[in-house]
């Protein structure tokens, strides 16, 4: 792990923990519960940032995949791989927190609404992404890059196709100022956490490649 990314990783870890505490305080102590939905609405402060992080990380996969195919350098592949894994974790969180909110508010755990369905399809695409990486043999990284590009371009088309199909997800609403601030703090905390996880995961991948290389040298 080079010095700069180590330093950034440590700083982002420290800042992420600070912001997480502030966010938790704001969410559970400061900000008032929503009028109609009550306490369950607070899951929104986790749901939205998790969705943002999954989009961000799949965007990073997209860019890193293009760079990998173009320049054929390992580091872009390591970045794409790390970001894809983290993105899938946060996408899973979105799919878990959504139904927990939906059950009391809509009365059902799941509904085939456009954003839910799009997120589910997104989740399936990136499960496939990690699968092709794992089972593609020594071409795994390259095939992963292809799926990282094709999959990300698919997101807007999936969204529109399913929106025309049907939709009931609440549209973006105007929030009280204290709610906006809480959401922003939560977004910052999640983004810092993402940065920290990403750098750690990339460093781990790099170390793994280095060990593989050393093993081959010994033979």
């Amino acid at each position: 792990m080079n010095k700069l990314s180590d330093l950034v990783s440590r700083i982002s870890a420290a800042l992420a923990s600070v912001f997480t505490f502030v966010a938790l305080y704001a969410i559970f102590i400061v900000v008032p519960p929503e009028q109609k939905m009550g306490i369950i609405q607070k899951i929104f402060y986790f749901h939205v940032p998790a969705a943002w992080i999954s989009f961000l990380s799949f965007g990073v996969v997209f860019v890193a995949s293009i760079l990998y195919l173009w320049k054929q350098e390992e580091r872009y592949d390591q970045l794409a791989h790390a970001s894809g894994e983290i993105g899938l974790v946060f996408c899973t969180l979105v799919l878990i927190t959504g139904p927990i909110w939906g059950r009391p508010v809509w009365g059902v755990w799941w509904t085939w609404d456009s954003r839910l369905t799009t997120t589910l399809v997104l989740w399936l695409i990136y499960v496939a992404y990690l699968m092709v990486r794992a089972y593609g043999g020594n071409r795994g990284p390259r095939y992963g890059a292809v799926l990282g590009i094709v999959g990300f371009l698919d997101v807007p088309i999936v969204y529109f196709s399913i929106r025309w199909w049907r939709t009931i997800h609440p549209p973006p609403v105007t929030l009280a100022p204290s709610m906006v601030v809480t959401l922003l703090i939560s977004l910052v905390a999640f983004t810092l956490l993402y940065l920290c996880l990403l750098l750690q995961r990339v460093a781990q991948e790099r170390m793994k490649d280095e060990i593989d290389w050393l093993k081959r040298q010994e033979r």
Partner: peptide
């Protein structure tokens, strides 16, 4: 891609079906 992988018959639908969701809809 899948023709050159080990689990080829399984890999193709796994990759293809999520991507072509808009086409199927």
């Amino acid at each position: 891609m899948s023709a050159q992988a080990k689990s080829r018959e399984l890999l193709l639908p796994t990759l293809l079906l999520p991507i072509v969701v808009p086409v199927i809809v």
